[in-house]
């Protein structure tokens, strides 16, 4: 299955986080907000400069290009049962 950067995702699509490759401080900041491996996210908005708005665990977050490039995601497949489906 193909992984790609969050910055390459499509607006209004739902994805699952596969990997976060950034400095430790930023990584911790993302983690405490619940952005972890296996977390479901939805892309709400993308700007030309690469910043992006995601919805994660019921919260809207605006993040910049550098971060959105450092997060690897995959498509949420309908029947996947890697993780139980959380409420949404």
């Amino acid at each position: 299955m193909g992984f790609f950067n969050l910055s390459e995702g499509t607006t209004n699509e739902k994805y699952i986080i596969e990997e976060i490759n950034t400095d430790n401080t930023t990584k911790t900041r993302l983690q405490v907000l619940g952005i972890l491996r296996g977390t479901k996210i939805e892309i709400l908005n993308k700007r030309l400069n690469g910043s992006i708005i995601i919805k994660v665990r019921g919260t809207r977050l605006g993040i910049d290009k550098e971060i959105s490039k450092s997060i690897k995601i995959r498509k949420e497949s309908k029947n996947a049962n890697l993780k139980p489906c959380f409420y949404r």
Binding site: L61, G62, I67
Partner: peptide, 9 residues
């Protein structure tokens, strides 16, 4: 600093 900002309703 990298931007992570919560967007309230």
């Amino acid at each position: 600093e990298k931007l992570i900002v919560e967007l309230p309703e």
